[in-house]
Computed example of a mutant assay.
Amino acid sequence: MEASVVAAWWGAIIASVVLLWDIFKWFSEGARILVSAVPNMQMLNSLKGKLDDDKMIFVEVVNIGDLPTTITHLTIYQYSSFWDKLRNKRSNQSVIPMQGTGSELPYFLGPGARWVGRIDQSDVIDKFGKGKVFYCGVYHTFSKKPVASIVDLSKSVT
């Protein structure tokens, strides 16, 4: 093979790799949100040295992307069946207006930043029922769909 043919193939391979890398960067840029929701959390009353009786769902949101976003809503919702989940047809849904953590919504979440909120677990049990599975999610300005975490109260310790 001639040197010009080898150089042409080498250039084509490098250009293809660079194109694939640019496509990967394009899909991975922006705000990427991780949500975790942990039920059965209790506040430690430091004055009395014991746990409060009220249980809550602790929600943590982290932006692992490279662009900032603003969290606009904290929500909980439920699907009645797996088929409804595939079709995104929610049977119950609610917005949590007050989180009681000091960092109320809307909240600006920069790259690498963290937001925490809480939901009164007894209110969730009253709405959805004890032993049910539901989702806790946040809406943010970088996406039209909520980013959610599953919460299973059927495995909760009472």
Rank of each mutant, 00 (worst) to 15 (best):
V35Q: 04
E29A: 04
E29T: 08
D53F: 00
E29V: 03
V38D: 06
D52E: 14
Q42T: 12
I23V: 15
V35K: 07
F27I: 05
K48L: 15
D52W: 02
N40H: 00
W26A: 14
G30E: 13
D54T: 05
Q42P: 00
W26K: 05
S36N: 07
D53R: 08
S46Q: 13
A31W: 05
D52T: 04
E29I: 06
P39C: 04
K50E: 15
S36A: 12
Q42M: 09
V38W: 06
S46Y: 11
L47W: 08
V35E: 05
R32H: 14
M41R: 04
L34N: 03
K50Y: 15
D53V: 07
G30M: 06
L34I: 06
F24K: 09
M43E: 14
E29H: 12
K48N: 14
I23A: 00
N40F: 11
D52I: 01
K25S: 05
S36E: 12
K50D: 10
Q42K: 13
I23C: 02
N40I: 10
L44W: 15
L34W: 11
A31K: 00
A31Y: 07
D54Y: 11
E29G: 09
W26M: 12
K25Q: 09
M43I: 11
N40W: 08
D54M: 15
D54I: 12
V38Y: 09
G49Q: 13
F27E: 11
I33D: 01
R32M: 14
V35F: 01
A31E: 03
L44D: 05
G30Q: 03
A37N: 03
K55M: 07
S36Q: 13
I33A: 00
G30T: 04
K25L: 07
M43R: 10
P39N: 05
K50F: 06
D53A: 01
A37Q: 09
L44E: 03
E29S: 12
W26S: 13
N45T: 02
S46H: 08
A31R: 06
L51V: 01
L44M: 00
K25V: 01
I23M: 04
I33V: 02
K48V: 01
S46P: 06
M41T: 08
M41N: 10
S46G: 11
S46L: 04
W26Y: 11
F24C: 07
L34A: 03
L44Y: 08
A37P: 06
S28H: 09
N45F: 02
K25T: 10
